[in-house]
Design a protein around this nucleic acid. Structure first.
Lengths: 210, 210
DNA sequence: ACCTTTCTCCCCCAAAAGTGCTATTGATAG
DNA sequence: CTATCAATAGCACTTTTGGGGGAGAAAGGT
C-alpha cells in the first residue's frame, strides 16, 4: 500500500489527482497541501511513502520542499510534478535528490506507473527529461584537453596541486630542484599560464586531475 | 523509416534483433557487426539513423564505439544495449554522448519503443538506469563548504585563482599589497593550507568558484 | 646516422610569496 | 558600552618562484 502525499496549489488539479489515486486499490492519499511551508511537520505526521510535489507554489515552492524532505526523510520518495521544464529547476531538484520528474502533460496512467515505479526504487522521468539529463553529462565531458604534457610533467603538476613546494617535489621524485623548475617552466609554457596558481586552476578545470 | 545498425557479438542475439526489427513496418536493419573496429567506415557507408550498441564485444567494445560514432557523426542516435550494468561503464557511455541505455533483459516491445523514442529525440533508459544517473547527481551535491571566508577574502581568493599576483590584486581593489597579504594569510589559515596552489585546488574542489 | 623528445641538471637574478608580528578604523552584535 | 570582527596597513625577514640562459644522456622514430 503506497501512502501518497500531494503538494499542489491548484485545488482542482489536486482533487483530480486524489480522485485518480484513490481509485487504485493499492494507493492511499494521506494528505494534500497547497505549499511546502510546513512540509517537515506534515511528513512527520502523515508518514507518506511517496510525495507528489509541484514546483511552482505560493510560499515555499517544491524545490525548497524536496530539499527539506530529502534532508530530513531521505527514505521518502519524492516525485516532482510540474509544468515548468527549464533546466535550472530541473537540475536543482535532481541535486536535491528528487526521485523522479514528471511533466504535467503526463497521462494519468503514466502517473500511476511512475508512482509504482518510484516506490520500487526506479527513477521515472519522461524521455524528454531524460534527454536533458544526459545532455548535462555531455557538456561535462572532458574536452580534448591535450596540452601535450609529458608523463613526468603530469606527475610534477599533480604534486604542485597538492601544495608541495619545488623542494618537496624534488625530494619526492629523487630529482634536483632545478629539474623540477625546468619541468614547471615547460608546464607553464604549454599551459599558457604565468604561475602555479593559474596552472592549478586550469588543470583542475580541465579535469586533468580530480 | 528508421535505419538501424546493430553491433552485437552474440550472433544469435543479433539475428533475433534483426528479425524483431525487420518485422516492424517502419524499421530497416541496414547492417550488423560483431565489433566496432571499423565503426567509422561502416556508419559512413550505411548511414544509419539509430545504432544499437552492445558494450562487451571482442576487439573494440561499445564504449570506444559510441565515442567514435558521436565524435564523427553526432547526429546518429546511439542506444547502448548490454547485460553489464556497472556504474563505470554506464557513466563512460553517457559521457560519450550515448542517447539511451537499455539492459538486455528489456522486453522486445520496450526495445521497439526505445528506438522510436530515441529517434524522436528522447532518451530511453530503464528506471533502474535512471535511478543510478540521478544518484550521481546527488553525490555531486555541493557540501556546506563553509570555510567562514569573508566577502573580501572570497574576492581576493577569486583573483588568486585567476593567476593574479598580490600586486595585481591590490591594484584591482585599490588596496595595498600588504592588505592583500593579510587577507591571504587569513585565507590560508581558514582553509588549513600552506600556500596559494593548495588554496586554489581546495577552493575549486569545494566548488567555491567555477 | 640524425633528429626530436624527454628527463635531467646547472647558473644568475629579480620578483613574488609566506611568516610573524603589530595596529587602526568602522560596523555590528550582545 | 564593550567586545568582536572585517578590512585596512605596515615592517622585517626568509623562502619560494619564475624567467632567462645552456647542456648532457637516453630513448625513439625516420
Amino acid at each position: 500500500m503506497h501512502r501518497i502525499l500531494i503538494y499542489e496549489d491548484n485545488e482542482r488539479l489536486r482533487s483530480s489527482l486524489e480522485l485518480l489515486l484513490k481509485g487504485m486499490h493499492n494507493m492511499q492519499v494521506v494528505g494534500g497541501f497547497g505549499n511546502c511551508d510546513k512540509v517537515i511537520e506534515q511528513v512527520k505526521e502523515l508518514s507518506p511513502s511517496v510525495i507528489l510535489m509541484d514546483i511552482d507554489m505560493p510560499g515555499e515552492g517544491g524545490i525548497i520542499g524536496v530539499e527539506k524532505v530529502k534532508r530530513h526523510f531521505p527514505e521518502v520518495f519524492v516525485l516532482m510534478f510540474t509544468v515548468f521544464d527549464d533546466d535550472e529547476r530541473l537540475m536543482a531538484c535532481l541535486r536535491s535528490g528528487a526521485n523522479g520528474y514528471l511533466l504535467k502533460k503526463t497521462s494519468p496512467l503514466q502517473i500511476i506507473d511512475a508512482i509504482e515505479n518510484v516506490a520500487s526504487g526506479g527513477a521515472p522521468m519522461t524521455p524528454e527529461i531524460a534527454r536533458r539529463v544526459l545532455e548535462t553529462f555531455k557538456v561535462e565531458r572532458k574536452i580534448p584537453s591535450d596540452l601535450g604534457l609529458t608523463p613526468r610533467e603530469m606527475q610534477v603538476l599533480e604534486l604542485l596541486i597538492k601544495g608541495h613546494t619545488y623542494k618537496m617535489i624534488a625530494y619526492e621524485y629523487k630529482i634536483s630542484v632545478e629539474t623540477v623548475r625546468s619541468h614547471l617552466k615547460n608546464i607553464y609554457e604549454k599551459m599558457h599560464v604565468n604561475n602555479g596558481n593559474e596552472a592549478v586552476a586550469k588543470a583542475l578545470r580541465m579535469r586533468l586531475f580530480e
